[in-house]
Amino acid sequence: MAADTHARQIAGLDALELAPARRAGLLTRAWAGTWPVALAVALVLAAWQLVVLAGWWPEYVFAGPVTTLTELGHRLGEAEFYQALTVTMRRAVVGFALAIAVGLVVGALVSRIRPLRRAVGSLITGLQTMPSIAWFPLAILLFGLSESAILFVVVLGAAPSVANGLITGVDYTPPILLRAGHMLGFRRLTLYRHVILPASLPSFLAGLKQGWAFAWRSLMAGELLVIIANRPSLGEQLHFARELADSPGLLATMIVILVIGILVDRLFGLADNALRRRWGLHQVTA
């Protein structure tokens, strides 16, 4: 049999084996992602309005959706809001970035070094369950009412999740891939770099997502407690809204905090989806 016939036969068989690529259009996908969100928002607003209508609290204590959203719209037009947003987001980004760095280093060391693993493995999980607000008295004692106090707690809140994500990923690297890497000549550090680390990416991403949630919570707790003069922030707005009994303002700020949390979470969701599609994992979960 001529080599050429070979090639053509095999090419024919391969074409038969491959399923044609099918993926919904952009619009369809955007719509599929949007309508459940819209529905959820509508449901929440309706429930909120019902509670207000029930009249358990006077309107000036618990503002309705219309008042609150008007107040929110009003705030979105003011420079002050953006100053607060900038301060808060800068803290979030710096704190989270530090947490990732710390989590990576700790996770890498703990997953590599066995005695260290035994020593601090469960400590990391323990730290994760510790409510971040419980750190603040110590943080304030150590750093005073300062940025450092807030960052300290944000990092402590998020780093254990990041580290744990990495450690879990390393632990659950499929043995067959380790064996394949070994056969290809990778050992110790090169095996770690070329096989183990990439294999733990999905788990690491899950750790990042959880870490973000912890970082955001710790940050809000911190901003409520550690108020620095002339440094407006979302948490601080929350604090003063309560002091001034400004119910619409308070609820409007809460909405902003919630929306930011959800948006960032969605970003991680997108990254996770992209990863799953690249790895071919989406077929399993779909």
Binding site: I176, L177, R179, A180, G181, L184, G185, F186, T190, H194, V195, P198, A199, L201, R278, W279, G280, L281
Partner: peptide, 20 residues
Amino acid sequence: EPALFPWLTVSANVEMALRA
């Protein structure tokens, strides 16, 4: 079983043999 690395393209999988 094929034991390919899912994060790499087909070509990169083969290249892994040459990387070491």
